[in-house]
Each structure stands twice: as structure tokens, then as C-alpha cells.
Design a protein around this nucleic acid. Structure first.
Length: 523
DNA sequence: GGCAAGTTGGCCGG
DNA sequence: CCGGCCAACTTGCC
């Protein structure tokens, strides 16, 4: 039997390692590659202009590549559960293929679509290619629960083996006997949207630093895989958050939209590592892909993963409702140049280094402003090209010491942290040119500069650039105590039965224990 | 009991 | 002046 097929692109905006697309081409007469632009989607999540532009780039590139296979991309406007049944009838569809997406709202949407397909007699083929592994399998192997530590995650993976190899991209051979019926009105009806159509003002766009698309992704991948020594010695915590050009690969936006397959990246790294000494997870580049997998698994296994309430792994904290603090942070006017420079880079370029995310996330939440991580999550969702539901929620919980990471007394200093990798403040001067003329000595703390120095620099603190929004040394100490209180509330069983702990120590108290205790007391 | 990607700032010894 | 150690201090897992 030959089929009329829709391949539904959602994430996975690529031809390489796309098993669902290959499946669509098998025994196929007419192929319709579809992307559904859901105008209602932005209702619950705000998407910034840079993210829209990246998506447009990725769609254009996809359409280009499909043309080379004598096909085209159909961008369809509407809600999937309304649009797909129409298309099933109109195109006499017998088969629907797509890539598995494990985000909760996607799972719900796809459940609905499966029902509709069944009603229309449409066969559905789903393939896993967005993640390295079948995440359900990982949860099964861990006795039905998502692993909560990276070490545990790695232990589970040892039993599962390496990820599958990527599937080669389709060729004209795959398209033998397959056609994509297009009319003259294709552009008009199924064309790729413009920023205008998406309600974005192109005039407001900053210069594009990271163009979207599979070709761009593969070019970038090649460029980095050529640097073999760099790849083999890569250790994420050693890279700089405030380098003038990125100290890491910036492949994350491409992986987020599926312009680059994580499995392709994984096996390209394996090829570079082959026979050489190389860094290891969690800090290596393989380790980065595993962190992604780790948070994807947690996001699938933990209910309400993007919220504090109803999230069983998340510490419940009495965050302040402070719109002024939140706005200052979002709009890069906290008065801390390091923080404001990072937030400026985020808004302009759509990407900031992982450790820069640490600095601003800690500052917004447990470090200084005591604003809920959910608010920060929303801002990142809007502005980050690589904003990914699972990673965004997981990392915000990590940084706010709400889950995964618990050493809340480790607070990043908005002054000291940046200095370690950028003594002269060049990064600050790049993104906050207003402060360009401040002497090095004051670049991280311009409010400490004498009036005459501020005048000389042409920038008066309190007038041209804000005074610091909080006193970091004071507020961060207070906040540590607030975190301590939140943690204490968390486990009432230790409150009720302190005897348990005493009982445990009673018998086996060693000399070393006693020494440690004494030391602590005297300190 | 010890260890875990990603702190800071103070103190001590060289 | 620099590197190293320590305290501040938690949970999950081995």
C-alpha cells in the first residue's frame, strides 16, 4: 500500500537524524511536510523577537533543504487539533509521522491528535530523536522514578548503554516515487511567516548574532569538532562567563529547536575522543548532553516541574512579591554592572554563558532580590534562544537551591564572581557602554567612585546609571537565614523526632566525631 | 561516613 | 603576594 503522508515538524527542524521523516517517505506517494504555527500558543508563554527570528530562520532553511528533495514546507496557521483533521480530509492522508516530544503540554496535545488520527483512519508513526535515550526507559530502570542526582543518572545509564546512532539524512533516493503537490498559491497559503505576521516590529530587532537553521547548526558543529584538542580538554566550569566572544559552543539554541540532533553531536564527539585522553562527564561536552538528558528525564518524571507548588522535589520558599525588583532585574537596571551587562547581552543576543545564568539567577532569587525562580524562568523563556522547558525549569530550581542543589550558603557575589575571569571589566564595557570610561578599579562597583571620578567618566551614579538596588553583603546574609528557615520547615520529621539522630550517634561515636564536634563548638 | 560541575572571604604559612 | 585550608552548611545516594 502507498500512503499520503504528513510529516509534522514541531521540534526536530532538520533533515539529518530524523527517523520519523524517513518513515514518512517509506511507501509514500504524496508527502506533506508540515509545520503548525499556533497563534494561541504565546498565550501562556511570551516569546521574544529573537526567538521568533530564530524560528523563522530555521523554517526557511528547512524549506530550502526540502526543495532540494523536490518537496516543500507547508506552514499551516491554527491549532493542531483543529488544523490536522482538515488536512487529513483535504489531502486524503493515511499516515502521520512526528518526533516524540515529552513536554507535558506536548504529550497532552499529541494524545488528542492520536485520537483524531484514529477517527480518520490515519496511521501514526512516532520516533524518538529529540533526546539521546527513551526517557521512559530510564525512569523504568530507576524503579519508576526520575534520578535526582547526576551520579545516580549515570549509574542508570550504565545499564542502558550508549545512545543510538543517528539516522542518515534523506536523499533523492528516499524520494523516489514520492511527490509533494504544490500550487501557485503556496507562498500565500503556506509561506513562512514574517516578524510582522507574528506581531513583532522588525525595527526593534537587534543585529542577529545566532541565525537559526540546520545548515548553520551543522556548520557550527563542524567548526568546533575541528578543534580536537579543545574538545578533548573541555571542562564547562573552567570556561568564562564573561568572555567577549562565547567560551562555549553556543550549539544549545540549535539543539533546542532540533536544528542539530543531540545524537549526532554525541557521536561526533565520540569520534573526536576516540583513542585520545579526554575530559569526562559531568564537565565534558558529552557531560553537557547528559545534563540535558538528566533534566529532560526529571521534567518527565516530576509533576508540576515548572512550578514550586505541587512540585514534590522543590523546596517551598516564601518568595517576595516584588514587581519593582523583578522589573529592575529584567530591564538591566539593578545598579550592579556585572548583572546588568549579562541581562543586556541576554536581551540583545538571546544567549548568555551558563555561569552568567548562574550569577543572574542567584541574584534574582536566593542571593539578593528574593523573587521567585518562576519569575526568572518566564524571563528566560522569553529571551533565551535555547529556552527549553525542562532545562529552564530544572536549572532555575538548581540555582535557587530549590531542588538538585542544596548548598544555599554558596552565594555568587555580583562583584567578585565576574572579576575572576574579567579583571578589567571589558565585558561590562561592551554591554554597558555608558560605563566605558570608568577606571578599572570601580567598574564592578561604580557607586564607590568619588564624585569627581564619576564626572570624569561622564556617568553619575543615581542619575545616569542606577545606584545598587540592594546592599549585597547585608541582604545575602539575611537571605541565607531565610533559606535555612525554608529548609527547616521542609522536613517536619526531624523536628518531631530529634531522638532519631541522637540515637544513631549514641553508640558509634568515634574519637574523630568528638574532635569534629569540639572543633565546631570552639569556632 | 563521604562525596557531589560551577562561592566567598578570612586566615595562615611560605 | 600567593596558594591552600576553613567555615558558613544541605540533601540524596553509595
Amino acid at each position: 500500500m502507498t500512503h499520503n503522508c504528513i510529516h509534522w515538524f514541531r521540534k526536530g527542524l532538520r533533515l539529518h537524524d530524523n527517523p520519523a521523516l524517513i518513515a514518512a517517505m517509506r511507501d509514500c506517494k504524496q508527502l506533506y511536510p508540515v509545520f503548525i504555527l499556533d497563534p494561541w500558543y504565546p498565550n501562556n508563554t511570551k516569546i521574544g523577537i529573537n526567538r521568533w527570528r530564530f524560528l523563522i530562520g530555521a523554517l526557511k532553511d528547512l524549506d530550502c533543504s526540502l526543495r532540494e528533495l523536490n518537496s516543500r514546507l507547508f506552514v499551516v496557521r491554527g491549532k493542531p487539533d483543529e488544523v490536522l483533521p482538515e488536512l487529513f480530509n483535504k489531502w486524503k492522508i493515511t499516515r502521520l509521522t512526528f518526533e516524540v516530544d515529552t513536554e507535558p503540554h506536548s504529550l497532552q496535545r499529541d494524545e488528542e491528535v492520536l485520537k483524531l488520527a484514529r477517527d480518520h483512519g490515519v496511521e501514526v508513526i512516532q520516533k524518538i530523536s529529540h533526546t539521546l535515550y527513551n526517557l521512559e526507559r530510564i525512569i523504568d530502570e530507576n524503579h519508576g522514578k526520575a534520578p535526582l542526582t547526576y551520579v545516580r543518572f549515570q549509574t542508570v545509564l550504565k545499564g542502558v548503554g550508549p545512545p543510538k546512532r543517528p539516522v542518515p539524512p534523506p536523499t533523492l533516493g528516499n524520494m523516489k516515487g514520492v511527490s509533494t503537490p504544490c500550487t501557485d498559491k503556496h507562498e500565500e497559503k503556506y509561506g513562512i511567516p514574517t516578524l510582522d505576521e507574528l506581531g513583532q516590529d522588525p525595527q526593534l530587532a537587534c543585529p542577529e548574532v545566532y541565525p537559526g537553521g540546520e545548515q548553520e547548526a551543522l556548520k557550527r558543529l563542524d567548526e568546533y569538532m575541528d578543534k580536537q584538542a579543545w574538545v578533548c580538554s573541555f571542562e564547562k566550569p573552567q570556561t568564562s562567563p564573561n568572555a567577549l566572544s562565547p567560551s562555549t559552543t553556543v550549539l544549545s539554541p540549535y539543539i533546542r529547536f532540533g536544528c542539530l540532533s543531540a545524537r549526532t553531536f554525541w557521536w561526533r564527539l565520540s569520534a573526536v575522543y576516540q583513542g585520545k585522553k579526554h575530559s569526562q562527564p559531568p564537565v565534558s561536552l558529552h557531560g553537557q548532553l547528559l545534563w540535558r538528558e538528566f533534566f529532560y528525564t526529571a521534567a518527565l518524571g516530576v509533576p508540576n516541574f515548572n512550578k514550586m507548588e505541587g512540585n514534590p522535589v522543590c523546596v517551598q520558599v516564601d518568595w517576595d512579591n516584588n514587581p519593582d525588583h523583578l522589573a529592575a532585574w529584567r530591564e538591566a537596571r539593578t545598579g550592579f554592572p556585572f548583572i546588568d551587562a549579562i541581562m543586556t547581552q541576554l536581551r540583545q543576543e538571546g544567549w548568555i554563558h551558563h555561569l552568567a545564568r548562574h550569577a543572574v539567577a542567584c541574584f534574582l532569587t536566593r542571593g539578593d532580590l528574593w523573587v521567585s525562580w518562576e519569575e526568572g524562568q518566564k524571563v528566560f523563556e522569553e529571551l533565551l534562544l535555547d529556552a527549553d522547558w525542562a532545562l529552564n525549569a530544572g536549572n532555575w530550581q538548581w540555582l535557587s537551591a530549590s531542588a538538585f542543589f542544596h548548598q544555599y550558603y554558596r552565594v555568587y557575589s555580583p562583584i567578585a564572581f565576574g572579576k575572576k575571569t574579567d579583571k578589567h571589566g571589558d565585558y561590562i564595557k561592551k554591554y554597558l557602554p555608558l560605563l566605558k570610561k570608568f577606571p578599572e578599579q570601580y567598574i564592578y562597583e561604580p557607586w564607590k567612585a568619588p564624585r569627581s571620578v564619576q564626572e570624569q567618566a561622564g556617568c553619575i551614579v543615581g542619575k545616569d546609571y542606577p545606584r545598587p538596588i540592594v546592599e549585597h553583603e547585608v541582604i545575602s546574609k539575611k537571605n541565607i537565614q531565610r533559606m535555612k528557615a525554608a529548609y527547616a520547615k521542609r522536613s517536619p520529621q526531624t523536628d518531631e523526632s530529634p531522638a532519631k539522630e541522637k540515637g544513631k550517634k549514641h553508640k558509634g561515636e568515634s574519637i574523630k566525631d568528638m574532635l569534629t564536634k569540639k572543633k565546631k563548638k570552639s569556632a
